[in-house]
């Protein structure tokens, strides 16, 4: 019932982005920022600039 109503509402405003989508996108950006602040990017970088032996099937 609730799902059908929200689908109808979406069809009434076909061009409008969903608030949930916008909220999750902003939350994702905030999480990225938090992750960068606590130094996760360095871990990603270290893994990505060295050949990943597990990925290629050797290690």
């Amino acid at each position: 019932m609730w799902k059908r109503k929200s689908e109808e509402r979406r069809n009434e405003r076909p061009g409008a982005p969903l608030p949930a989508g916008m909220f999750l996108a902003v939350l994702g950006l905030a999480m990225m920022g938090f992750g960068i602040c606590r130094g996760e990017m360095a871990v990603v970088m270290e893994k990505a600039v060295n050949i990943c032996m597990e990925c290629i099937g050797i290690g």
């Binding site: 996108a25 994702g28 999480m31 990225m32 920022g33 938090f34 992750g35 606590r38 996760e40 990603v44």
Partner: peptide
């Protein structure tokens, strides 16, 4: 992993 999870969530 906030950075990678946030990236996946954003995308």
């Amino acid at each position: 992993a906030f950075y990678a999870a946030g990236f996946l969530m954003f995308t």
